[in-house]
Write a protein that binds this DNA or RNA. Sequence first.
DNA 1: CAGTGGTCTAGACCACAAG
DNA 2: TTGTGGTCTAGACCACTGG
Lengths: 266, 266
Amino acid sequence: MISGEAVKMKKNISKIKGIIPFPDKNRIDFKGPLPLYRQIKDLILEQVHSECWDFEEAMPSENELAAAFSVSVGTIKKAFAELVHEGVLVRRQGRGTFIARPSFNRSFIRFFRFAGGEVTENEIPASRVINMEITPPTEGVREVLRLEPGERVIYMKRLRLLRDIPLALEDLYLPEKRFAGFEKMDISHELLYPIYAKDFGVPILWADEYLEPRQANEEAAFHLSINVGDPIMRIERIAHTYRDEPVEYRIGLGRGDRFRYHLVLR
Amino acid sequence: MISGEAVKMKKNISKIKGIIPFPDKNRIDFKGPLPLYRQIKDLILEQVHSECWDFEEAMPSENELAAAFSVSVGTIKKAFAELVHEGVLVRRQGRGTFIARPSFNRSFIRFFRFAGGEVTENEIPASRVINMEITPPTEGVREVLRLEPGERVIYMKRLRLLRDIPLALEDLYLPEKRFAGFEKMDISHELLYPIYAKDFGVPILWADEYLEPRQANEEAAFHLSINVGDPIMRIERIAHTYRDEPVEYRIGLGRGDRFRYHLVLR
DNA sequence: CAGTGGTCTAGACCACAAG
DNA sequence: TTGTGGTCTAGACCACTGG
């Protein structure tokens, strides 16, 4: 499933093992206007986001941190509580406090519906790779991914299918720097975001998405088995990792007759 | 702007004024497995959602509630804190705790872009009402709005424009029961959700939205000044108020060349 | 069993708003 | 000045986990 090259890449990722080191106690300002729990929260957040921690990594306990910072346990509790609310940490009674598994549970598939109208969940869409190459980026891609001059991208064109029915045609751009070796992997039956996280240490934390109605051009019509001019949904996505850095750019063209995008506004 | 009829409706809305009454102290179970702060939170939530409170309504203070429930102030703080996180309450230092203004800041307009690509914010789109009538609902509308047999709906078809450019054609359905008098109002330069809240006591709290790419039919093409077959975005929205009750159903058809839907996935 | 987080108390002191 | 919420402390007791 993963080539030898890719496995080697995986080992090169520097993950800090064991317990997360204590933040620097001396950086706490007891007299300033910023509350203690806020300062402590920021210090922890800085540590968590500055490195590629393994998910499920253990934090020091409440008592340890309280002692280290010379504050009350309640103050640590409050800092932790906010980080839990923000999805950064997870607390488990009797066990400890851990770094939350970055979850991004928008599977591409949940936006599709089938003829009957039923939404298909839990089904893994298959991918048929049409093109995969390493290439200099176009100006637009360079800007979106904030690439240095000379940096190249891994470019993939693939068709996504469910039950052998083509659903969407996708162009995908990844910075070569972060994803070297990706082009040699077999991703035909895998979801990409778990691969980014597991094999390249790049969890996807959030994404911008732009939707526009369009009509199929010749290429899209051919691959999606529809007619030129049929309605399609153009989905542009910019996915981000730690520090809001963009790491993936995709442009999908979804079959209009099978596409239904559902969202909840709050 | 508002007809006499509509003003009369407004006065009929029963809003509880002054300070929110204390929840029933006797409903607290000090021995059960459910934490005290959780029980108190649920009681408050029940009160807030059961009636049409004015926004900005004052809650009893921490000390008063702590005394009323015979619990510590910290317990009340924790209950309040969670409700603040959920957007139900707002706390203001030195003043008190208040019911949060139900905010639903998705203005229709923010999803459009203009030729240059600039997004237009803060501009109020105009409406041109094409049809407005009170009618028995179709089966589909009846189901979506969960209407009793015999209940009628206010049906409106309108064109939405920005800078005199038609952007979207909209069908809108409201239950006559809640919105009696709406059909006599002039809504050509107003946003609807503030009207629902202010004049009918029905704040919109959240909405389901479904997007599909389509091609313009004759009617849409005519009103949107495009050609039959041009791409359009079909936007179906079901808007909800307290207790997740659906109170508005709209089906919009947006001009494809001016429509760009942006969302952030987390 | 020892150690973890979860709940709860009863205080203290502060910053802020309003009369 | 009074009352509000915001922060912080130093405890207590509990429920859960793991060895």
